[in-house]
Structure formats: structure tokens, C-alpha cells
Amino acid sequence: MSELLRSELLGSDLSHARTLALAGRHGGLGAAALTPAAPATRLSLRAKPDAVETLSAALGISLPTRPKTSASSNGRHALWLGPDEWLVIDETEADLMAAAASSNVLHSATDVSHRNTAILVKGFGAEVAVNGGCPQDLTLAAFPINACSRTIFGKAEIVLLRTADDAFRIECWRSFSPYVFGLLSEAAEDAGN
């Protein structure tokens, strides 16, 4: 029985029935608008230095090797989190696990597409809003576009990526996302003051 037919018979193909952690949320004001990011595929990628080049080729993105840097290309982002650790995000929901597996080089890839969710912060007050809970220096000189960091926001761990002068992507674990969104909303509202 074909996959499709069986699903139709059961009437229960739920592969599009996702419940997003931040569905329907919106926050912030003119200074910094908050939007839950669309679903994306994500990998927690671990590998030693000698595998970086091969993995980069397999993933079609150059894995960064300097702290606080990331690489982006066609909706795919590779964020340096540690000397042997990257968070790879694909906004087109491409199959990252398969891409990593095709490298045939020693590495660890774990699918964390649903573990994380993301909040997009945009506006002239974005930097101030994020600094409402994140202690890092986020001025452009210290945290330029494409800079990224696994850091804290209030009492939650986040991965912060600067996508533009006035825009950040904040990745956090699913169950922490209402807290992060709530604190970010308050900070965003104060950012305009």
C-alpha cells in the first residue's frame, strides 16, 4: 500500500499538523518588532577541525572557525558555537541530516529542528531590546552583522545571531520560548523610551 493511500485511508496524515510554540504571538512596538520565525530545519553539528572542509562541502556552506562568527547562504546559516560545535539552520527546511551524512567524514549530526524555535527582532531599538536581558556588548563594532553567540537572555539560554544592523534572530529551546518572548516584549517596549 502506498504511503499516500494508507494515510488517506486512515485520514490521519499529520505531517503538516505542526503546533508552533509561539503560534499567534506578536510583540514589541515600533522600536523593535518581534515575530516568531517560520519553521526551519536545524542541526547540532559536532566535528573535529580536519572534518570541517568536507562537511562544509557537503552542507554547501563554509563552517566558520572563528568564535562569534557565522556563515549564511541562501537561507542556510552555520553558527560557530564552540571549537567543535555548530548550529546549522536551514530556513527552506532542507534535509540537513542527509546533507551531513553524505559527507562520509567523522562527525555527529543531531536533528534539533523542533528543539529550537526562533524569534526575529527588528527595529531601531532591536539592540537595546536584546540588551534588556543579554549582557553582551551588542554594538555593531563588537557584534557586527553575522556575529553569533550562545549566551543568556534573562534566565534562559539563547543563541543570538545578528542578521542586520537592526535585526537579530534569537534561537531558544521550545519550552523556554514563551519566557524569552515575554521578556523580550517588555524589553522591546522599553527600548523605544
Partner: peptide, 15 residues
């Protein structure tokens, strides 16, 4: 400051 009510501490809920 912000750590009041729902923001006092993260409340983790399952899906």
C-alpha cells in the same frame, strides 16, 4: 525589574 509574575522564572510546558 522584569522578573515578576510569568517572567519570574521560565515556566516550561510540554507541547
Amino acid at each position: 525589574n522584569h522578573s515578576r509574575g510569568e517572567l519570574f522564572d521560565p515556566t516550561r510546558k510540554t507541547p
